[in-house]
């Protein structure tokens, strides 16, 4: 383990470097304040994939890497919809997933919001509406905010969450 602590001290905090410039710092400060004010210090997100290509999930996972470190802003992905304030919905809303998505939404305690993630849930991705696809999500759920991209980059997701927090 001594190797690890050596490495840890050598590496320092990586979140501060490379393209993580002042703009991101300001953005993060703004986001932290918004979370504190509107959600008593923490915003709990339940991510639901309703039929994506898995790139949106990969980018949400990337938000936890030390370069983005979303959780230190008080924004956390939670395991149960019953712990969540927000449903972050990716994917085209397949026929097979629709009932489960509606079920998960029903389990989120009010007040609750749905944020659509990526081009799929608004049917802007290359996938065409067909028999197995029930999107756009807006026909089934009240959408409070949309984060575009295919997939949206981790930066774009953080920015999207900030815009959402500014809106409500």
């Amino acid at each position: 383990m001594i190797q690890f602590w050596e490495k840890r001290l050598q590496t320092g905090i990586v979140t501060e470097h490379k393209e993580y410039d002042e703009r991101m710092k300001a953005l993060r400060r703004e986001l932290k304040d918004a979370v504190k004010k509107k959600f008593a210090g923490s915003l709990a997100i339940r991510m639901v994939d309703s039929g994506s290509c898995n790139a949106c999930e990969a980018e949400c996972n990337a938000l936890s890497n030390p370069y983005y470190d979303l959780e230190r802003l008080g924004i956390a992905f939670v395991a149960s919809p019953r712990h969540a304030d927000v449903m972050l919905l990716s994917g085209v809303l397949t026929f097979n997933m629709l009932p489960h998505v509606l079920d998960a939404y029903a389990q989120i305690p009010a007040p609750k919001w749905v944020i659509t993630l990526g081009d799929c849930p608004v049917m802007q991705a290359p996938f065409e509406k067909g028999f197995a696809i029930e999107g756009p999500a807006g026909e089934h759920l009240p959408i409070a905010h949309h984060i575009p991209g295919c997939p949206p980059s981790p930066d774009a997701i953080i920015e999207g969450l900030l815009t959402f927090l500014g809106k409500i």
């Binding site: 039929g51 994506s52 397949t94 026929f95 997933m97 996938f127 065409e128 028999f131 197995a132 696809i133």
Partner: peptide, 9 residues
């Protein structure tokens, strides 16, 4: 659950 019917699409 993610069956999107891509072969047909």
């Amino acid at each position: 659950y993610k069956y999107r019917g891509i072969e047909k699409m």
